[in-house]
């Protein structure tokens, strides 16, 4: 099944090339042909379900820095699953890619998530807003240069931020990332935060703001 699809696809679009893949067939597509290739796969080969749409950040200074990956599934032809990869256009700061919302309506929120996490602008998207982080959050967290702990910024709502004095902080890693080392039997010592001395029973928690207790 998948071999026939690949043969037909390459016959119609000679510019499509195979992409190494451990399981399902995958192809690289030039940016200009992406929408036509996806439309062809949807209409001619019954890939009626866009399983996922995501991006890869290859690293800073890599070229291309971002690659989009589309996971396609056919609900009518058994065993039809394939991936289509395409490099993003645009600069490192503001990569762009064509939107496929007009092909699969389900791409809408996937593209919003991808925009939220990677900052990829989808050209033609009807409503490209952040979906997980709040509007006005200044970073794109899944980019390689973004630290896991986060970067200090302000809370989403200004009056609450002022009232509580709280802010978005870089999370204390507390000896983590949160993975226990296998083979350590004593869990109290194996726990990552046991190795951390910045925030323990003996030392006060950093930048703890004293909250105003509400009087009756």
């Amino acid at each position: 099944m998948s071999v026939e699809v690949l043969t037909a696809l390459k016959a119609k679009f000679p510019q499509v090339s195979d992409r190494p893949s451990a399981d399902h067939p995958a192809v690289d597509v030039p940016r200009a042909d992406l929408v036509e290739v996806l439309r062809y796969l949807r209409d001619e080969h019954a890939f009626d379900l866009l399983m996922d749409l995501t991006a890869i950040d290859w690293a800073q200074c890599a070229s291309p820095r971002f690659t989009m990956v589309y996971h396609l599934l056919s609900t009518t032809r058994a065993g039809s699953y394939m991936r289509v990869a395409v490099a993003c256009a645009g600069s490192e700061i503001e990569p762009t890619s064509p939107s496929v919302v007009h092909l699969w309506a389900g791409a809408n929120w996937h593209e919003r998530e991808c925009f939220d996490m990677f900052g990829i602008k989808f050209e033609g998207h009807p409503d490209l807003r952040r979906i997980l982080m709040w509007d006005g959050y200044p970073y794109h967290p899944l980019r390689k240069e973004f630290p896991l702990a986060g970067i200090e910024t302000v809370l989403p709502v200004a009056d609450i931020a002022e009232e509580t004095g709280a802010k978005v902080i870089a999370a204390p890693m507390a000896g983590g990332p949160f993975v226990a080392i296998s083979g350590e039997i004593n869990l109290t010592e194996a726990e990552p935060r046991a190795k951390d001395e910045s925030w323990s029973d003996r030392a006060a928690r950093p930048d703890q703001t004293a909250l105003r207790q509400v009087k009756e």
Partner: peptide, 9 residues
Amino acid sequence: MYRSYSTLQ
């Protein structure tokens, strides 16, 4: 366990 950018500590 959420020592991450999105979670209030």
